[in-house]
Write a protein that binds this DNA or RNA. Structure first.
Length: 263
DNA sequence: ATGGCCAATATGATTGGA
């Protein structure tokens, strides 16, 4: 069972790249962020024709998430619980059945939070608190669970090429990283770090100032696993080469293989 | 890592991204 996450920065602009990458990587389940289109405008058929079931939750212009799955959805729910007033399209959770049992997957687009001294940062921290409460509840189910997405969090010094530059940024502030640690410390496993401790693993390179050419990047796209999922983790990686394609997103896909009888 | 980008929007300037 291959599960991936990718912040595509507009699904309309990324159609060709997404097609090429699906063909190359052959994921069973894909969590997408920043689709930037309404559910009406989402071209479901393009992915259904490739064998994927589609769950989309979008809004006009910004945000927007989706899950593509070769396995039919048993359940789909949108919006992170904990704030009925939150209108931003940042969360979908789905349940699928595998030969090895149930699998729960959520796509997450955690708020950026910049600039820090504003309501935007307060919203980010509140969203992280809600995510932690939700994760605690889901972990109690003791199921294979994957929370995958753009967390907009640089977890450690090992995940950034030029830490000085991010010192005062919402993605790297001590308060942000502490919230993220609390989330992980509920019992989640950062899949990429479980397999590879090397520095220089990035998932995002800014479009500006030649960041990609100079390999100035950060690791902010993560797959967090429940113990039942982590037990089955067999491999995974960051598809860095995709950043070098024509018309790239500023993020690249990250994927894992779980031994769950589909692959 | 700031001279240099990209996407969406009744669009040619502004907002959001990270």
């Amino acid at each position: 069972m291959r599960i991936a996450t990718w912040n595509v920065n507009s699904i309309k602009q990324r159609g060709e790249a997404l097609d090429a990458w699906l063909e190359e990587r052959q994921p069973d389940i894909v969590c997408l962020q920043e689709t930037k289109c309404t559910d009406e405008a989402f071209d479901r058929e393009a992915y259904e024709s490739r064998g994927y079931n589609v769950a989309a939750h979008g809004q006009k212009s910004f945000n927007g998430v989706a899950i593509l799955s070769r396995i039919p959805f048993d359940e789909v729910s949108v919006r992170l619980p904990g704030d009925a007033e939150d209108e931003q399209a940042r969360f979908i959770e789905a349940v699928v059945s595998t030969a090895s049992g149930v699998l729960r997957v959520a796509t997450i687009y955690l708020p950026n939070g910049n600039p820090p001294a504003t309501e935007k940062y307060a919203y980010k921290l509140r969203w992280m608190d809600r995510l932690m409460r939700h994760a605690r509840q889901r972990l109690a189910l003791e199921e294979p669970l994957v929370f995958a997405g753009d967390y907009n969090v640089i977890p450690t010094l090992n995940d950034v090429s030029h830490p000085k530059l991010w010192e005062k940024d919402a993605l790297f502030l001590p308060e942000t990283r502490a919230r993220y640690r609390s989330l992980v410390n509920l019992g989640l496993t950062d899949a990429i770090r479980a397999m590879n401790d090397d520095p220089g693993l990035y998932t995002f390179w800014d479009y500006q100032a030649g960041a990609w050419q100079k390999n100035i990047g950060i690791r902010i796209d993560h797959l967090l696993l429940s113990p039942q999922a982590a037990d089955r983790l067999s491999s995974g990686g960051i598809d860095k080469h995709v950043r070098g394609w024509e018309k790239p997103s500023d993020h690249v896909p990250v994927w894992i293989d779980l031994g769950l009888n589909s692959r």
